[in-house]
Amino acid sequence: MLEARFGETLLLKKIVDALKEIISQSTLDCTETGMQLQSMDNSHVSLVALSLQTEGFEKYRCDRNVSLGLDLKSLAKVVKSASGDDAVTLTAADKADKLLLSFESDNKSRTADYELKLLNLDQDHLGIPETNYACIVQMPSSEFARICRDMSMFSESVVISCTKQGIKFSANGDMGSANIKLSDTSKGDITIDVDEPITQSFAGRYLNTFTRATPLSDRVKICLAPDVPLLVEYPIEDYGYIRYYLAPKVDE
């Protein structure tokens, strides 16, 4: 049996918002160490991985591993009906065909229970190898969101170049071109670690979708290495993360 209580529905809302634009259905795997989710988007261009350790919950109990096949649009509707500061408890039996979500207002004067039908998803899991990234850049998540938004006005593709001097985002389209450069700051809000310089091209539409996770974290980590997918990671406090992997584009 699973019983997991978030002190605030707001966290669950932010997580659902960060997932639902990129995947429509996914399996949430619950074990005694926490919750994990991994899914590719429909086009198999990107992959999203969520991890929440038990420390992120006000209460967490999972006697046996449970896999919950979720329709994220439905889950979004349910969490939307709750207030951000409500507590929410997720409950599922061992071989559950439904997930119970119980919301409780701050002063416990209002409770709302929802049963969500679970899906029987036959989902592949991919093994993500440990990677020594050539470039690791950390910046405010709001800055990254702004850059992705601005780049996508110019072109479908965004070129990311990273050297010891800084990280550069470029887009080149019918309207013209855009270049945004960031360098390491003494304030420490932007850090750039470079073993070897790299230039790769990515679909801006996906980068933009990843920035739906911005409310989850003030910081974002961008990791690049030759001929491997880009990693964009949003930490969730110190007990979890949401990671997006995006396959690079290659010249025809």
Partner: peptide, 12 residues
């Protein structure tokens, strides 16, 4: 050309 993500990661 857009590559696929599953070309990089092995199925478990």
């Amino acid at each position: 050309m857009q590559r696929n993500i599953d070309a990089f990661f092995k199925r478990l």
